[in-house]
Amino acid sequence: MELINQKVTHIRFGEGFIVNKTDNRISIHFSDPIGLKVFVFPDAFVQYLWMEDHNVQEYVINQYYQNQKEIEAEKQRQHQLQKEEEERQMAAEMASKATTRKAAALKRKALKRKT
């Protein structure tokens, strides 16, 4: 959805128009003396900004919730990867300890045979 030139209202700066948008930033021009301000997109629309067009506002809020779902999914994925890595490390440590115990047992057997 095209957001450039959409009219917005900020709780403190008043009315302005969107002049630029990137993936996670939005630039809004307010009347002087405020001028150009940059906000995190779409997060700022949850707290500070409102679109004049209700359909566009709904789109932006949906973008926010979609981003939140993606962030949560990524956190869960990272947590799962960390858990798997910890399990691999524990298995490697246990295997190393078992190998050390087997080597020590073989050494003891060999010493007993010599005597």
Rank of each mutant, 00 (worst) to 15 (best):
M1L: 11
R25C: 04
K75F: 13
K97P: 03
G35T: 03
Q6I: 06
K37H: 09
N67G: 09
G16S: 03
K97G: 04
N67Q: 15
E70K: 15
F13S: 13
N5K: 13
M51S: 07
K114P: 00
A105D: 01
A95M: 07
M1K: 06
L3Q: 02
Q80C: 13
I61F: 00
S31T: 06
A91T: 07
Y48N: 13
L81H: 06
V56H: 02
L106Y: 06
V38Q: 06
K102F: 08
A98L: 07
A44S: 07
R25P: 02
I26D: 00
R108F: 00
Q89Y: 09
T115V: 12
E74I: 09
Q57W: 05
R108H: 04
Q47Y: 11
T9K: 10
E72T: 12
A92K: 09
Y48P: 07
H29E: 15
R12Y: 10
S27C: 04
Q78E: 11
Q63C: 15
S27F: 05
I11W: 10
A91N: 08
V8Q: 05
M94Y: 11
K97L: 10
V38P: 01
Q89V: 06
M1E: 13
K83D: 15
I71R: 12
M90H: 13
V40P: 09
K37Y: 07
Q57K: 06
Y59G: 02
Y64N: 02
K102A: 12
K112C: 12
W50V: 13
V38F: 01
V60I: 06
D53Q: 05
F17W: 12
V40T: 14
Q89S: 13
